Every structure is written in structure tokens, then in C-alpha cells.
Computed example of a mutant assay.
Amino acid sequence: MDELAVLPDGLLQNHTCLHKLSIQRMRSLRSLSNQLNNLSSLKSLSIEDCDEVESLPEDVQNLNSLETLKICGMPKITALSVLPSSLATLRILLCEELTSLSEGLQYLTALKDLELYKCLKLNSLPESIRHLNSLQSLRIFGCPGVSCLPNQIRHLTSLSSMHIRGCSNLMSLPEGIRNLEMLRELEIEDCPNLERRCKKEKGKDWPYHRHQWTGNTVLGDLKNI
């Protein structure tokens, strides 16, 4: 439905038992405002390739049953609005203009899985990441603008897996990573600055990270950091 700019009034208003909603390739759609209010049972929401949508509707934060949110191919979204605290999985893919996650992340205390993929203008993770006490998996792929990770990452006490790939300007890992007692898997690939700093026995950060180093990948059991 390439020419549809708005969804028909009432299209989603009476679906109180709906569990999954996927909106894809509606190239002219401009807004989803006032469409999600009554979706009280919605558990999974995916919005993909909607080129003209500039922001998530405010009523997303009222979806108290929502567990999974995927946002993909949304070139005009620059920031996240407040998201429901029930979220367990958040995937943000190919949102090239996204610059800020601050507001969207601060209340996600149930979030277990966070993935960022090719968000080219994102330059850092917000300090509010400290509130993600349930986060178990963090994946950051193809985000060349990210130059650092906040030291507040030390508060992610449930984090067990972290994968960083294709972040060419990421200069170093925060010292707070040593406080992550549950972290068991760390993979770093195609991050040349980190490769130099973590080079076995020679890199500046090698004393901080006791990992097995192979090529462009750091893999290891971090229990004894």
C-alpha cells in the first residue's frame, strides 16, 4: 500500500485480543498516532520500511503487554520516544538518522535483548543504559559513529553476552566492563582501534581484558576479570 498516508480511522481500535502487529513497506505512511491505544494484549510490534514516519506514536508507551519491538528501515526517525517498561526485546535496524536513545531506554528495566544495526548517526549509548538491570544480550553492529561506550555499562549486572562489530571509530572499552560478573561472551570484530588497544601483550588495554585474541575477534570467558 505504497500510497496510503494514514491508516483508516478505527482500523485497529477494537482488536483488544491482538498479540502481534506488523506494518511493513508502507512508503507514504506519515503517522501511526491514535492507532495503538486499545491494543492492550499486543506482545509483538514490528514497523519496517515506512519511509515517511518521523517518530513512534506516543501511545506506544501505553502498550503494557508489549514484549518485542522491531524498528527497521525508518530513515526519518531521529530519536526514540518513551517505550513501555514491559519490553524484553528491542531491535533497531537501519535507522540511519537516529542520533539519540536517551528517552527511549531509561524505563526498560525488563529489557533482556538490545540490538542496534547500522544506525549510522548514533554516536554513543546514553548514560541511562545503567537502568537496564535485566539486559542479558547487547549487540551493536555497523554503527561507525559510536566512539565510546559509557562507563555506566558497569551497572548491567545481568549482561552475559556482548557483540560489537563494524564500529570503526570505537576507541576503547570502558573500565566498568570489569565489573560485569555475569559476562561470559565478548566478541569484537572489524573495530580496528579496539584491535590495536587489545592486542595481546602489547595493546594499552590488554592488562584489563584477559581474553583469547584471534584475528579481529575477542572471545573469552570473562569470569575472572
Score class of each variant (00 low, 15 high):
120 L>R: 04
120 L>W: 00
120 L>V: 01
121 K>V: 00
121 K>L: 00
121 K>R: 07
121 K>G: 00
122 L>S: 05
122 L>F: 02
122 L>V: 02
122 L>W: 03
125 L>P: 04
125 L>G: 14
126 P>S: 01
126 P>D: 03
127 E>M: 02
127 E>T: 10
127 E>C: 00
128 S>Y: 03
130 R>N: 00
131 H>V: 00
131 H>Y: 11
132 L>K: 09
132 L>E: 14
133 N>S: 14
133 N>I: 15
133 N>F: 09
133 N>W: 00
135 L>S: 03
135 L>E: 11
136 Q>R: 09
136 Q>A: 12
136 Q>Y: 05
136 Q>N: 10
136 Q>H: 08
136 Q>V: 06
137 S>L: 10
137 S>I: 10
137 S>G: 02
138 L>A: 04
138 L>C: 13
138 L>F: 13
138 L>S: 11
139 R>H: 05
140 I>W: 05
140 I>Y: 07
140 I>F: 06
141 F>Q: 11
142 G>M: 07
142 G>D: 15
142 G>V: 04
143 C>A: 09
143 C>I: 02
143 C>L: 01
144 P>M: 08
144 P>S: 11
145 G>P: 04
145 G>D: 08
145 G>K: 13
145 G>I: 11
145 G>R: 14
145 G>N: 10
146 V>I: 15
147 S>W: 05
147 S>P: 01
148 C>A: 14
148 C>D: 03
149 L>T: 02
149 L>K: 11
149 L>C: 12
149 L>E: 12
150 P>F: 03
150 P>I: 08
150 P>G: 07
150 P>Q: 05
151 N>S: 12
151 N>F: 05
151 N>G: 03
151 N>T: 02
151 N>I: 05
151 N>P: 07
151 N>V: 01
152 Q>I: 01
152 Q>A: 08
152 Q>S: 15
153 I>C: 15
153 I>G: 09
153 I>E: 08
154 R>T: 03
154 R>P: 05
154 R>N: 12
155 H>T: 01
155 H>W: 07
155 H>M: 07
156 L>E: 05
157 T>W: 10
157 T>F: 01
157 T>N: 10
158 S>A: 15
158 S>V: 12
159 L>G: 09
160 S>I: 01
160 S>N: 15
160 S>H: 12
160 S>Q: 10
161 S>W: 13
161 S>N: 14
161 S>Y: 15
161 S>T: 13
161 S>I: 12
162 M>Q: 02
162 M>Y: 02
162 M>L: 15
162 M>N: 06
163 H>E: 15
163 H>I: 10
163 H>P: 00
163 H>T: 10
164 I>W: 13
165 R>I: 11
165 R>C: 12
165 R>P: 01
165 R>M: 10
165 R>W: 14
166 G>F: 07
167 C>P: 07
167 C>I: 04
167 C>D: 09
167 C>Q: 07
167 C>Y: 10
168 S>V: 13
168 S>W: 08
168 S>R: 14
169 N>W: 04
169 N>Q: 06
169 N>L: 00
170 L>A: 14
170 L>D: 11
171 M>F: 12
171 M>T: 09
171 M>C: 12
172 S>C: 15
172 S>P: 11
173 L>W: 09
173 L>R: 14
173 L>C: 11
173 L>P: 02
